[in-house]
Structure formats: C-alpha cells, structure tokens
C-alpha cells in the first residue's frame, strides 16, 4: 500500500493484468510512441499524458503497440480481436474521438452477443479521457458517458479516485463484455493510498462516500470529489448528506440510489455531461418513477448548460458544476416547502 496517483493506479492495473494474462494487449495512438521516428527511441510517450508509460518496455511490441491515427480501423480491430480470443485494451485518447469509430463500438462490439444469440464474447476495454477543466475546448472536453450508457451491450465505468480506478480497471479487463472506461483528464495527478496487489471492484455496486440524513447527492466521476467537498461544508452548517458514487452507469446501482432517497427524501444529482438526456435526467426519471412518495422536495440537477465546452478559463469555470453550485442546490432543496405546508 502506498500513495499512488490516478495515472499510476491505471498504469499498475494494466501492468498487473498483462502479467497475469498473456491475452491482454494494449493498443492506441501513441500508447507507446516513437515507432517510425528518426531517433529509434521506443516507448517515447507512453500515452499523450504518460498513463501507459513503460508498458511497451516491459511487455514488448507484440503486446503494446501504436496504431495509426485511424480510430475506425483500430477500435474495430480491437472488437474483432476480442471476439476471436484476445482481450484488448484499446485507448481512444480523447472520448470526443468516438465520432470517428462509433459504428465499431455501437453496431459491432455492443451488438455481437445479443445479435448472435448469446454465442459471442467480446472482452474489450476501451479507455478514453473525458471531461472539461483542461482548457481543451469543445472537441476535447466532453463527458460522453450518456452516449455509451444509452447503448445496450456496453458497460460504462467512471472511476472517481485512484483506488477506484485501479480496482475498476482490473474488473473491466477481466469482464467478458465490452467496457467503456472513462478517465477524467483533470484527475491524473490526484493521489491516495492504493494497494500494490491486484484487486477488483464489482460493477453495479455504488459506493457511499458520505452518509447523512438530509439530502442524497448522486455524483459521477470527478463530480464525486466536488460532492464530497460540498457535503463536508454543509455538515458544518448542520445539513448532512449522503454522497453516492455509482462507479458504473451501466450497470447502474438503482437499488442504492432508491434506498438512500427513501432515507433522505431529497435528491441532488451532479453530472458534468451536457444536460439533455444525461445521467442526471436518467436518475431523476428513476427516482420520480420509483420513489415519488419519498420525495420531500423537487429533484435538483447540477449540470452544465446546453452548450459546447468553452475554451476561455472564465467561461469554462462558469460552465462546470462545482462544490459551490452543489452546496446551493442542496440548500435549495432543504429550504423547499410543499404547498400545503406553506
């Protein structure tokens, strides 16, 4: 056990699984880097942000290899390889690039099992960075997990910390279904204690990072940290919150969400993806349908506006959900009074 960054946790998960299972391979644009360069240096980058650094050096060019900048072909190849005996981990770099290969994910990998009558297994992991807060603007900042969550046949994982990332990635690699594993690019230097050995965190089991009586906050990925921060502040002003990190949006631990809402009667959902048809609307619909009687106040969503992610720091800060916005939302549901009580 030692302090590890989000980046190290992911690197370690890949390393441990590649040591354990020779069928696990890693491919993507510059996951190693340097191939074909004039210097002859190999493993030059280890990913654009260094997440896969050193893996090619340990496992060789047969198991860790660069792809051309050609998402449709290599994401499709990863799907085809998964269906024929390998366990590929393909890196899509920025999740925004899914536009170049969505067919291979949506119509191929996600559909094989059902469409072929249960006769296919597609143990594929697609890793990609998501999220705003990096001044990367509209084509490199999206949080597209609702898109994948919408597609039956895919599993979708959004780790909220280094410990979570390692255990969830190992689980993803061992899973026999296609898994979209989304890493918030702003979190790579976050650190916490992470065991050195292999461990797995099951999909579909939410984690309660805070437990309280007044308001349930459901938050995804990086938003869990903001929700924790808000909950800790609110605690000091006498409002106690439960914070739910669903960990996976598909499968989604609806049971835990409903149980917590039944206990608190109030719900705030924090989702950094665009507000229409996102996870916040999904969870809101779930609770409205299944736990209407438990609600003491309207459900509040803390989400960005329906705009592309802006570039300028001032606009981007305005765009993002944060602890202040969550705190305000929690206070607003706490101060709500039903009409008949008013």
């Amino acid at each position: 056990m030692s302090k590890k960054s989000f980046r190290q946790a992911i690197n370690e998960a890949l390393r441990l699984e590649m040591r354990r299972d020779p069928r696990v391979i890693l491919m993507g644009e510059d996951v190693a880097g340097g191939r074909g360069g004039t210097s002859g240096v190999t493993d030059a980058w280890g990913g654009v942000l260094g997440v896969t650094k050193g893996l090619q050096t340990e496992f060789g060019e047969d198991r860790v290899f660069d792809t051309p900048i050609s998402e449709a072909s290599y994401i499709g190849a990863a799907a085809g390889a998964a269906a024929t005996g390998l366990r590929p981990v393909a890196e899509l770099m920025f999740v925004d690039f899914v536009g170049c290969c969505l067919d291979q994910i949506m119509n191929q990998a996600a559909k094989f099992r059902y469409m072929f009558g249960g006769k296919a297994r597609t143990p594929l992991v697609i890793r990609a960075m998501y999220g705003a807060g990096f001044n990367a603007a509209a084509q490199h900042s999206q949080a597209l997990y609702p898109l994948f969550t919408h597609i039956p046949g895919l599993k979708v994982v959004i780790p909220s910390s280094p410990y979570e990332a390692k255990g969830l990635l190992i689980e993803a690699i061992r899973d026999d279904d296609p898994v979209i594993f989304l890493e918030n690019k702003v979190m790579y230097d976050d650190e916490e204690d992470v065991p050195d050995g292999s461990y797995t965190i099951p999909f579909g089991e939410a984690n309660l990072t805070r437990e309280g009586d007044d308001v349930t906050i459901v938050a995804f990925g990086r938003m869990v940290n903001f929700a924790n921060e808000a909950a800790d502040r609110l605690e000091k002003s006498g409002i106690s919150c439960t914070v739910i990190d669903p960990r996976t949006t598909s499968p989604l631990d609806t049971g835990t969400i409903l149980d917590c809402v039944a206990d608190t009667g109030r719900l705030v959902i924090v989702d950094e993806s665009s507000p229409r048809c996102n996870l916040a609307t999904d969870v809101a619909a779930l609770v409205a349908e299944e736990a209407f009687d438990a609600l003491k106040a309207p459900i509040r969503r803390v989400v960005p506006p329906h705009t592309p992610v802006p570039f300028s720091s001032t606009l981007e800060a305005l765009y993002m959900p944060n602890a202040d916005k969550i705190e305000a939302a929690v206070k607003s549901v706490m101060s709500y009074r039903m009409k008949e009580e008013a």
């Binding site: 410990y163 255990g167 065991p195 050995g197 292999s198 461990y199 797995t200 965190i201 437990e211």
Partner: peptide
Amino acid sequence: SRRMIENIIRFKRLDGA
C-alpha cells in the same frame, strides 16, 4: 465504524483473499 468495514471490504477485494 464505516471506515473499518470499508477497510475489510478493500482487503477482501484483493486477488486470492
């Protein structure tokens, strides 16, 4: 405590535990 339970769950998640 919550923390103690979480630590035990974390131990049990380790491969082979």
